[in-house]
Amino acid sequence: MSGAGRTTSRNPQVGAGKTVPRLPETEAVLEVRRAVRGWLAEYAPEVSSGVAVALSGGADSLALAAAAVVEAGHVDALVVDHRLQPGSGEVAAAAAAAALKLGCRSARVLAVQVGSAGGLEAAARQARYAALDAARAGLPVLLGHTLDDQAETVLLGLARGSGGRSIQGMAAFADPWGRPLLGVRRAATRQLCADLGLTPHEDPHNSAPEFTRVRLRTEVLPLLEDVLGGGVAAALARTAEQLRADGAVLDALAGELLRAASVDSNSEHSEGSDSNGVSLSIETLATAPAALRRRAVRAWLLAGGAKALTGKHLHAVDELITAWRGQGGVAVGGGGPGSRLVAAREHGRLTMRLR
């Protein structure tokens, strides 16, 4: 999944005396520009060195790049070529050329090798983000996710059934990833492209019914909008935003609980040692509200090296605290060849060790 090749083009028309391009003041253009301007004001007030934009050549990322050039000034376009379809190199080159025409400072094509772990969608996402992170040169990377994408993400999280965290959707900023368009509908980005005379690339994967997200987009959300009288996508996005705000408060309180329950295991005389040198007091955890306890335990497990935690993992570990019947430890997805990372209850404490 590493980058297999990189081609960078510099825009000769962009320099110290750069003239900000003028865009038509249509409704769609102004909406996207306001979204980008608001994001920059809140999350990146100092952007003298610029931002990077992940550009696929689709309508969302083209609209984002066009608005970012005006609002942020210096924009470097990063185009990932997944090499999963015939002609993908030509598509990537066309996207880079469009970026330079829009006024981006540079456009870089990143060719990647997509593996197979976790399925095609997950492997492509991992390869894409790794390549973007390696190429961003310290700049925040703006992604073209829209309100529609947010609604789809919330529905996917709801199907997982892992609690409020799974339906919080995508964050507007999770360093280094920025999503200025989470309040903008996909129709607006398409209209901006039409207003600017841009022809977006239509990725065949975006209409392939074998992908769950595509079926949500083309079948489930339209049906919900029809049955419930419209406004479903916006309502789902608002729900995600509210849950994210609530989650931030709960996470802070859970952090206080985790500090109160933590015991330095390596200073104790016990068999073996915990993977992160910290065990947790069962008594402290058991007397805490369930919502805080589970969040604290989740943070502790992740810090100790647990991987791919699910609601089932967390429920089983929580039962070690609140429904103790002498049950054995819980494998929590970490470890290595010949060993597993296991959370267990020992002498009134919750421990996590390789076994």
Rank of each mutant, 00 (worst) to 15 (best):
A92N: 05
E152Y: 00
D133Q: 13
D81C: 03
Q126Y: 04
K101G: 15
A96G: 15
E71T: 10
S61R: 09
A98V: 13
L102Y: 13
A131E: 11
A117R: 10
H145V: 03
L64I: 12
L102T: 08
P140T: 04
A63W: 11
G87F: 07
R128S: 07
L156T: 08
V141Q: 10
L155M: 08
R105K: 14
L156G: 07
R128L: 03
P86A: 08
R136D: 12
V79F: 00
R125Q: 00
A99I: 12
R105E: 15
V141D: 12
G138I: 12
G115R: 02
V70H: 11
V114E: 01
G138L: 06
D149W: 09
V114M: 01
P140A: 04
L110G: 02
S106Q: 05
Y129L: 11
L102R: 08
A65Q: 14
V112S: 03
L155K: 08
S106T: 14
A111D: 10
A135D: 12
L143D: 11
S88N: 04
L132G: 02
S88P: 12
E121Y: 02
T153N: 11
Q150M: 05
A123G: 00
V80G: 05
D133A: 14
A124V: 00
D133G: 11
A131M: 08
A117W: 09
V112F: 04
A117T: 09
A65Y: 12
G119Q: 06
A66I: 11
A66W: 13
H145E: 15
A122W: 02
A124G: 04
K101D: 15
A94S: 15
A137I: 07
V75T: 11
A130F: 03
R125D: 01
P140S: 06
L158H: 12
Y129S: 04
C104Q: 08
L139A: 06
L62V: 05
G157P: 09
G87K: 09
A97M: 10
L143G: 00
G87N: 13
L120M: 03
R128Y: 00
A124Y: 02
E152F: 04
A159E: 14
D76A: 09
R136C: 07
G118S: 12
D148F: 08
S116K: 07
A94F: 06
V69P: 06
A137D: 15
G73E: 12
A98K: 14
V79E: 07
L155Y: 10
A117H: 13
A63Q: 04
A111G: 09
G89N: 01
L110E: 07
A63L: 01
L100E: 14
A137R: 15
A107T: 13
R83Y: 01
V70Q: 13
A111R: 15
A151Y: 13
L64E: 10
L100P: 13
Q85N: 07
V112E: 03
L102H: 00
G103E: 14
S106C: 00
L156N: 05
A72C: 03
A99H: 14
A96M: 07
A130S: 13
G103F: 08
L100F: 05
Q85P: 08
G103L: 12
A93N: 09
V80R: 01
A124N: 06
V109M: 01
L84D: 02
D149P: 10
S61W: 04
A98S: 15
V114C: 04
A68H: 01
A111E: 15
